[in-house]
């Protein structure tokens, strides 16, 4: 008896592309990405670089920032406490003193560039240069200034990477969860240096969807509050939430888009049952979001579809309320584990 619906379901889950020819193409793509990144090395000028400290630290954090004075104190403090040994930060033409603040930190190396963020593949190229030079053989954590990595059990990164190494996993996945306030996003007050998640203490506990990416074989997670509010009618364009921020770096590795996808493809296999995963708590919706969105509209340096995002930025400026009665209040890592947003896996 024919069962058309089963056939339809099979068609919706096309097999992963894995022919030898395709694998070879991916190999060249990876080489091209590395080559492209290395060509951008001249964009960077050294502001304060402590090569001795970088060499001594087993765990490095990388970030590209622009005018993040408000978030930097917490960003550094949070990840320091987690066990990051040294921060390598590219400052993309900040005007609010972020660069001099960073240069004054004991465990931060700063590079500066005025080149185009978009042409550097949204900073990925710059950070790949730095990882190529300093990250090989180390655990490299790649983040944005508005992300805070949360680990299952509230344990440290040092313990995590020891476990990952012992279980033969070269990478660690995390899903990005947007935190938002109860009122309109452009209202309220945030005191720099304190945790932004006292103000942004709500998040969507469910409504995330995942599918395997046919080309890169990563898990493509979408959903959450930004889709619920801004991308209802185009869920396919909704922001990608899966990331692979922590990698035991080798020179042949490459990030494809932001930290969502990597090559070689096996690094994307961070979601096998039993693998520990984390959460990147996203503090995007601080009150200053309206001003940033307005600036973004004129700079047009953000994401592929600047036109698509125009409407999104316009709405952010108007200060929408993201909160809903079904939102969850953030209580800590255990809660995220119970909700299934992250898992300690076999790292119990």
């Amino acid at each position: 008896m024919p069962a058309p619906l089963f056939a339809a379901l099979a068609a919706q889950n096309p097999p992963l592309r894995c022919s030898p020819i395709f694998a070879y193409r991916m190999r060249w793509k990876r080489r091209r990405l590395i080559w492209r990144a290395l060509r951008r090395r001249h964009d960077l000028s050294r502001l304060r670089v402590d090569e001795g400290a970088i060499a001594a630290a087993p765990l490095l954090a990388f970030a590209t920032i622009r005018n993040e004075m408000e978030r930097l104190p917490f960003f550094l403090a949070h990840h320091r406490a987690l066990g990051v040994g040294h921060f390598l930060i590219v400052d993309n033409a900040s005007t609010d003193g972020s660069d001099s603040y960073l240069a004054a930190q004991p465990d931060v190396s700063v590079w500066r560039t005025d080149a185009s963020y978009k042409l550097a593949r949204f900073g990925v190229d710059w950070l790949m240069c730095l990882k190529f030079k300093f990250g090989a053989g180390k655990w490299c954590l790649t983040l944005d200034a508005d992300e805070a990595l949360i680990l299952p059990g509230g344990r440290s990164l040092g313990a995590l990477v020891t476990h990952l190494a012992a279980t033969g996993r070269p990478s660690f996945g995390a899903v990005m969860i947007d935190a938002y306030p109860k009122g309109p996003v452009n209202e309220g007050h945030y005191q720099p240096g304190t945790t932004p998640f006292d103000h942004l203490c709500w998040f969507d506990g469910d409504g995330y969807r995942a599918q395997r990416h046919r080309v890169f074989d990563n898990l493509w997670v979408q959903g959450g509050v930004r889709e619920r509010v801004f991308f209802q009618d185009q869920p396919a364009r909704a922001p990608t939430l899966n990331k692979t921020p922590l990698v035991h770096w080798r020179r042949g590795y490459a990030y494809v888009t932001s930290t969502h996808q990597m090559l070689p493809r096996r690094l994307n296999h961070v979601f096998d049952t039993g693998a520990p995963t984390g959460v990147l708590l996203h503090s995007k919706f601080l009150p200053q979001i309206a001003a940033k969105s307005a600036e973004e509209l004129t700079r047009r340096q953000h994401f592929q579809n600047s036109a698509l995002y125009e409407d999104y930025h316009q709405r952010l400026i108007s200060g929408p309320v993201l909160w809903h009665a079904a939102s969850r209040r953030y209580h800590g890592p255990t809660q995220l584990e119970q909700l299934g947003l992250m898992s300690a896996g076999d790292w119990q």
Partner: peptide, 20 residues
């Protein structure tokens, strides 16, 4: 429980932490 999580995961959960 660790073993259970490692080998089977939580039934009915589809997320970054479990995608069979």
């Amino acid at each position: 429980r660790t073993l259970e999580r490692r080998t089977r995961g939580r039934p009915g959960l589809y997320m970054h932490s479990r995608f069979p």
